[in-house]
Nucleic acid binder design. Structure first.
Lengths: 215, 215
DNA sequence: ATTCGTGTTAACAAAATTGTTAAACAAAAA
DNA sequence: TTTTTGTTTAACAATTTTGTTAACACGAAT
């Protein structure tokens, strides 16, 4: 019983994620979601009460997963530049896997600003806090031009995420195939690092499990 | 007759723009649009045939206006850095006025990739072409690290537009009021220039009409 | 075997939204 | 004034989409 329940519930969420995050059907109906999962539409209401509550859950889980990924990297004990390099690598790769994830987050939060507000109120440490010290040191050592942690972090997110958000526009303007755009995004990892630090990106050591440092 | 027609038609479009671009109701119904304009809902169909065709028109006009603004600046004869400074200034200011414009463009083009494809096919010169020469010179003079015009342009758009796209998220994370976020965006003009060029942004001379240079 | 609970389905009801139409209306043209 | 043309409105129809419910299936517990 319990097993079945979790299976179907999970299945629906997984398939909904594919629809939203990979295929980009941001306004998918309950029917389309049910079809994708190969289940009866009523099950969506059985498990999630309403379409809206299901979206809430998806948004919440998605934000949570992203937060964890980011924090794991930013709160690690890696040297600053390697930390940022890994952040770029991870965010871009994640974006390649789920091209419409950011679009989902952004359109959902634009629609219901309260949701993101509640989510943010759960913990008071923002990601820019995690790099504040590192950044201050770099600036003191004159290894980077003075910049606030907030602006630094927004710059970084912008450079990583915008090309995904604007995929359809950019890809069309520059006449790229899907494959070419993929290559372009991977190239960008180096470009982003270069733009931020004005120097070549270091080779990343083979990915190993990062140990979480701070809360 | 003709006068009246243009008035109402224009009125509806203006109010729809407010709804979409300023208030961020990206999924506004025909009824909501009609209410905003204070007209009968049927008029929307009278003038635009269908909701979809109205959105097409809005998207087209919006893209066109943005293209003109950008081209006017990028094809001017200003020195490179001033050109870019003005681009940043214009794009950010425009974003302050219409905080959801980019969201609209992006969600519409994600929904109907054909629309943007057709729009782009109308002229073959992309904005990155307009800076190609300038950029090559800068690189040759070692005044900027080597970078392709495409990456340069995407960087620039990303840094300017992302903070608007992700407004609700960023504003909440960093706990800013609307006023504070506005200030933050204006601060960013200098930050963006700094990030791109690694040097202070020059003071912009008083805005004068720019003369268009190339097509 | 019967009961019970969970999961599942089809059928139904309700709401929201779009699109159409016929008639009212206003203003210019005849 | 009457006609005509273009504009506006209310009412209607059709569709889409969400949400509910009653019945069914089926394994587990009694």
């Amino acid at each position: 019983m319990g097993a079945e329940e979790l299976q179907t519930e999970k299945l629906i969420k997984e398939k909904a994620k594919i629809l939203f995050f990979q295929k980009g059907f941001l306004n998918a109906t309950t029917q389309e979601i049910a079809d994708e999962a190969g289940v009866n539409r009523a099950l969506i209401h059985y498990y999630f009460r309403s379409r809206e509550q299901m979206l809430d859950l998806l948004l919440d889980e998605t934000l949570e997963e992203k937060k964890v990924r980011v924090r794991t990297i930013l709160s690690s004990e890696l040297p600053f530049r390697e930390k940022i390099a890994r952040y770029i690598d991870t965010v871009v790769d994640y974006g390649l896997k789920y091209p419409y994830l950011e679009n989902f987050i952004i359109s959902e939060t634009a629609r219901h600003p309260d949701k993101i507000r509640e989510f943010c109120s759960r913990d008071r440490i923002k990601s820019s806090d995690l790099i504040e010290e590192d950044l201050a040191k770099e600036i003191k050592k004159k290894k980077i031009a003075p910049i606030s942690a907030t602006h630094f972090m927004v710059n970084l997110s912008a450079l990583c995420n915008y090309p995904l958000l604007a995929k359809s526009v950019l890809q069309t303007i520059h006449g790229m195939t899907d494959a070419a755009y993929r290559k372009f995004l991977i190239e960008r990892k180096r470009i982003i690092f270069m733009t931020i630090f004005n120097e070549e990106m270091p080779e990343l050591p083979v990915k190993k499990e990062l140990t979480k440092h701070r809360a």
